[in-house]
Amino acid sequence: MQITYIHHSSFLVETELSWLLFDYFEGELPPIGKDKPLYVFSSHRHADHFSPVIFTKFGDYPQVCFILSSDISPKKVPEDLLGKTHFMKKGEKMEFGTLQVETLRSTDEGVAFLVREEERTIYHAGDLNNWFWKGEDKGWNAQMEKNYRKEIAKLPDTLEVAFVPVDPRLEEAYDLGARELLENREITYLFPMHFWKDFSVCKRLQATLGSSSCTVMQIEHTQQNWRLP
Rank of each mutant, 00 (worst) to 15 (best):
H86S: 12
H86W: 11
H86A: 08
F87Y: 14
F87C: 05
F87G: 08
F87A: 13
M88E: 06
K89N: 11
K89R: 13
K89G: 03
K90P: 03
K90W: 04
K90G: 12
K90R: 14
G91D: 12
G91T: 02
E92C: 09
E92I: 10
K93I: 12
K93P: 00
K93E: 11
K93G: 01
M94D: 08
E95I: 01
E95G: 12
E95L: 00
E95N: 14
E95W: 01
E95S: 14
E95V: 04
F96P: 09
F96E: 13
G97F: 08
G97T: 10
G97N: 08
G97M: 12
G97A: 10
G97I: 13
G97C: 06
T98Q: 13
T98M: 12
L99T: 12
Q100K: 15
V101T: 13
V101Q: 03
E102V: 15
E102F: 07
E102M: 14
E102A: 13
E102C: 10
R105D: 05
R105F: 02
R105A: 12
R105K: 15
S106E: 07
S106Q: 07
S106K: 00
S106D: 05
S106G: 05
S106A: 09
T107D: 05
T107V: 00
T107M: 01
D108F: 10
D108I: 03
E109M: 02
E109Q: 08
G110D: 00
G110M: 02
G110E: 02
G110W: 03
G110N: 01
V111Y: 00
V111A: 02
V111T: 06
V111R: 01
V111G: 07
V111H: 04
V111K: 00
A112M: 06
A112W: 04
A112K: 10
F113H: 09
F113E: 06
F113Q: 08
F113R: 08
L114K: 11
L114C: 13
L114A: 05
L114N: 02
L114V: 15
V115D: 05
R116V: 05
R116M: 02
R116K: 15
E117N: 14
E117P: 04
E118L: 02
E118Q: 14
E118W: 01
E119C: 03
E119Q: 10
R120S: 10
R120D: 05
R120G: 01
T121Y: 06
T121H: 08
I122V: 15
I122N: 14
I122A: 10
I122S: 12
I122L: 15
I122R: 09
Y123M: 06
Y123K: 10
H124T: 05
H124V: 14
H124Q: 12
H124K: 01
